[in-house]
Amino acid sequence: MTVTTPAPPRRRWPSPLALGITAAVVALHVFAWNATGFSPAALVQGADGIADFFAEALPPDLTWDTVLRPSLEAALVTLGIGLLGTTFSVPFALVLALLAARATTSGSAAYQAARSVLSFLRSVPDVVFALIFVTAVGLGPFAGVLALVFHNTGVLGKLWAEAMEETDLGPRDALWVHGASRVQVAAHAVLPTALPQLVGLLLYRLDVNVRSSLVLGLVGAGGIGFLINQSIKLFRFDEMVTHILVVLVLVIVVDQLSALIRRRIGA
């Protein structure tokens, strides 16, 4: 008996809609190319300038008293800005996330209000917050901490709310049918179920905030960003490279610690 294999289905060519979307994406990139003055030729022509820059920047100035020690001290300040900016945003982000997650919120009005506050805090860049707080509390790291607290509340609250919404709702239902209140359900079902994700996101934000506090230093919020800004203004690129190397070490240490903790908690 001969068995006839069915013919394969006909090829499916891209639909006109898919072709149209592809053409639109290509057109957008052409527009962006022109709008940004993207020019590989200019980069090649300017290679001499880059060579001059590296000639001035290398080797880095590792003088202990005037460059490296101040750099390390400022790096600790930068770490402090990122740490406090993250930690002090936790209570605000937690309350707003609980209100902004459908798994825990107490009503649609509270949900909408919390979502709006989070959107506002998230949409104002931390640098803008820093400029505002510099006018209030003066130049220095404190303004940077305040800026990060506000901006990070928006970002962390949003991320946490999403994580809570994605958790298994079974434990929540189980407690709810046993008469638990919303706060009790949040405390004993939603939060412990989502804990690894919440801690993972917190550490990720700490990592981001340490890097953000570097940028905040450029607008007067202290830390090593402030030193980098000064070096650039004084054309001391060899000092700038030293500061950047210190930043590199700081970012790697924070990243590794964060990864280690996330592995331990299974996030």
Binding site: G170, D173, H178, G179, S181, Q184, H188, A189, P192
Partner: peptide
């Protein structure tokens, strides 16, 4: 699907049944 909180102890999960 049982719906316990795996990170919590058996005792804590049982206590959670009487939170109301």
């Amino acid at each position: 699907k049982i719906h316990l909180v795996g990170r919590r102890t058996a005792l804590d999960n049982v206590c959670a049944g009487a939170l109301g």
